[in-house]
Design a binder for these strands. Sequence first.
DNA 1: CCTTCATTTGAACAGTTGTTCAAATATTAA
DNA 2: TTAATATTTGAACAACTGTTCAAATGAAGG
Lengths: 114, 114
Amino acid sequence: MDICGEKCINEKKVMETIKTIPRQENVGQMAEIFKALSDPTRLKIVLALLNQEHCVCDIAVICNQTDSAISHQLRILRTLKILKNRREGKIIYYSLDDDHVVSLIKMSLDHVRH
Amino acid sequence: MDICGEKCINEKKVMETIKTIPRQENVGQMAEIFKALSDPTRLKIVLALLNQEHCVCDIAVICNQTDSAISHQLRILRTLKILKNRREGKIIYYSLDDDHVVSLIKMSLDHVRH
DNA sequence: CCTTCATTTGAACAGTTGTTCAAATATTAA
DNA sequence: TTAATATTTGAACAACTGTTCAAATGAAGG
């Protein structure tokens, strides 16, 4: 990996900072979580489940979207292990499964409220 | 706004949760910040500036992208007031301008590292 | 078995996104 | 003024995203 060829203004500062940046892998993980929360529908799902678990069609009502649209988004959040689900007969209940994401959400909630 | 028509499984739970969800406006603001941090290039810019201020072309080297690509992303982050800049002759230095975003980033950094 | 209901799935679509390229600005120095 | 350098801008493009719709699945009850 060619870190700094010859075009850089302040090679020393650049080198210093590059040392502090996490590995590509970790940057990717961070970006993935932020991306999951960057869609208003998905964010609303997570905010709803912050209160209590809900089934798919209730989440659809809360988010004012079709069951199908919600199901697609739930799959994304489940794949990222942000949500988990449990079946009770025909109904599937979703709830939060990542304490860290909960903290992130609460912190950003505090911000927009103050 | 028709909150709950007749198709909802558990009207009481739905009503309870709807009360806890922030206003659309605030959900939108939260999503906007998460979206800003959801692109690996933009996230890397913010991570770099967590260390110290940098000029555009140094950021380009750090992120391994063209000056132009970085400039486009800097505009997005500046518009959201996540970054500020100062001019020193021909060179424009960018730095962080939102303590809350810094906290969010640090919290998510802690997470991927542990 | 057949029906109903909750959820999932896949294809299709429009809308958005990030990067590239070339051209435009803006500042400095000769 | 002219040339050189740092940054910005706008158009264009492929790649990606979220929603919709229709059809498929899976569980419970008759």
